[in-house]
């Protein structure tokens, strides 16, 4: 705010307007007068659900320039009526958290440090190990001849924070592959 530009100097504005003590409009700077809420200037609003606990509070995600700028409660939700708990309110920081990882890391046997790996090779390596371990530990029948058709060599843990669709794909893939040791937080 160019202090001396024209008559914008608050002292003149104090005299001009009724605000002689310089408490309100006379001292407001141009930037303050142009204040706008982040939500109003967001490109789009997306309705989502909080990822933390099972109450399933509605969330509104405000996006600007393809980046999440604000996540707050969704007033339309009959479950939460626009309210959130501390974790829900911190969702925006969960998405943009400083500690979040963005690249695939790999630790070779006996290595003491991570090494970067590009995603496609990582998935290929995992697929190979999956098939190899499945073959090593396949059990066709048990000792009494009853069919088992399973592998005990592959296990999985986790799913309560995943979507139903993801759980569905995981269960279908693992069951088709015969890996039955699948578990998730519902048990803990």
């Amino acid at each position: 705010m160019g202090r001396f530009s024209a008559l914008e100097w608050p002292v003149f504005r104090q005299l001009r307007s009724g605000d002689h003590l310089g408490r309100g409009p006379a001292v407001a700077s141009a930037k303050t007068r142009a204040t706008q809420s982040r939500n109003a200037t967001a490109d789009r609003v997306v309705q989502s659900i909080c990822p933390y606990c099972a109450v399933g509070c509605g969330q509104r995600v405000y996006v600007k320039d393809e980046k999440v700028v604000q996540i707050e409660g969704d007033p339309d939700s009959p479950v939460s009526r626009g309210r959130l708990c501390p974790k829900g309110a911190a969702s925006e920081q969960l998405v943009n958290a400083p500690g979040r990882q963005y690249d695939v890391l790999y630790r070779a046997p006996r290595a003491t440090e991570w090494q970067k790996l590009d995603r496609d090779t990582a998935i290929d390596m995992i697929a190979e190990r999956f098939v190899r371990s499945r073959r090593n530990t396949w059990q066709e029948t048990d000792d009494e001849g009853r069919i088992l058709r399973r592998t005990m060599g592959i296990a999985s843990l986790g799913g309560a924070t995943l979507d139903n669709e993801e759980n569905y794909l995981i269960k279908k893939l693992f069951t088709a592959a015969g890996a039955i040791q699948i578990e998730n937080q519902a048990r803990i």
Binding site: R3, W9, P10, V11, Q14, H20, L21, G22, A26, V27
Partner: peptide, 11 residues
């Protein structure tokens, strides 16, 4: 520092 002379605030 020049903002000190931005207004004359009697209070």
């Amino acid at each position: 520092f020049y903002n000190m002379l931005r207004t004359i605030k009697l209070t």
